[in-house]
Design a protein around this nucleic acid. Structure first.
Lengths: 184, 184
DNA sequence: AATTATATAGAACGACCTTTCTATTTTAGG
DNA sequence: CCTAAAATAGAAAGGTCGTTCTATATAATT
């Protein structure tokens, strides 16, 4: 087994468990057990649990953006709608409940590690993403529109916990259409 | 000090700390310390930490609805907008970050206590609330509109973590106006 | 004043947490 | 084949967790 495979397994297992039970609800023992790995293997790759959390967040952010980029054609007629749809598909495929970045911000707020800032960075990037989209489409109130779409995605994620990804996405698409139609 | 005051103090302190650092991020030691109370006083009022979490959620739900009821005149022209505004004011006053009920659902999913169902109950009630509002206004697609407004509130709460309650609420009000205007 | 309920401080419990250590074994590259 | 890196199992340290216990003190009710 190559050097990086163990690390990848750990990241994958950790992400799944953190998402399922929360960062504080999962112990390293459970992670190394499900990853079929020794304690010291984890500590050889990650200096601490906090660092593991950080790496998980970074990995998740990369996956999210490559997912979005793969599904949104920036030059199409409706990149906004495509983004909402892609987000919905992402939610569905993850059988998502809640948002890992938001949970990280909440759980680690006020502690002296990088976790919170990494998570906030992801959210900031989401805002920028929609701002760029608005510029491209020549919308006047870029900032407002970007904030509204970010709010829409955040709401969709939350609603997924309540009514499932498919229904939540249907509603957000309907709302997104209305928004795009009635914004200069 | 009367019998119930200690219990009330505990509930108040616990709610603040749970909200600030998450349910799993706060120990009973910290709660009894900040409440200036002995260990056994807590256990005389609450049989377990899980039960304390349950009572905190129930208390929070009551406070939320009495807040909304106090601010929303059901018979006015724009009960939807009033509800969005009231929710925004609630977020601001709580200096809110994240949603306690959503966090409870996520943190305690799959455990064998009542916590998750209490939290889900709150969310279900939110949906029903908007459904009743839609009926009252004679809207055709009650369910859709209710879901959309719930999504809006959920999104506002999430966005509060990122851009603050005031700005988040401004955006949700704008979106709500558009929605009401363009729905039969 | 006597009784009963409630609160107190603080120790103790066993379980689990993150992290470190040791000593052995496996794996790959020169 | 040999060597150096990487992974192994398992124990141990040092801490915190939720919970229980004990024994004392404070309040409120009769």
């Amino acid at each position: 087994m190559a050097r990086s495979e163990k690390k990848d397994t750990l990241l994958e297992v950790a992400e799944r468990l953190f998402y399922e039970h929360g960062f504080r609800g999962v112990g390293l023992k459970q992670i190394i057990s499900e990853a079929n790995v020794a304690t010291m293997t984890l500590y050889n790759h990650f200096p601490s649990k906090d660092n593991l959390v950080e790496e998980v967040l970074k990995q998740r952010e990369e996956r999210y953006w490559s997912y979005l980029d793969a599904h949104v054609e920036m030059d199409s007629d409706s990149p906004f709608i495509l983004a909402v749809k892609a987000h919905g598909r992402w939610l569905k495929e993850q059988s998502y409940k809640g948002d890992m970045f938001l949970r990280a911000i909440e759980d680690y707020a006020g502690t002296d590690n990088e976790i919170e800032s990494i998570a906030r960075g992801h959210k900031a990037k989401l805002l920028q993403y929609f701002q760029r989209l608005a510029q491209r489409k020549g919308k006047e109130n870029e900032r407002d529109l970007a904030n509204q779409f970010t709010l829409l995605l955040e709401g969709t994620t939350s609603m997924t916990t309540l009514i499932g990804a498919e229904e939540a996405t249907e509603h957000s698409i309907a709302m997104a259409r209305t928004l795009v139609r009635h914004t200069s």
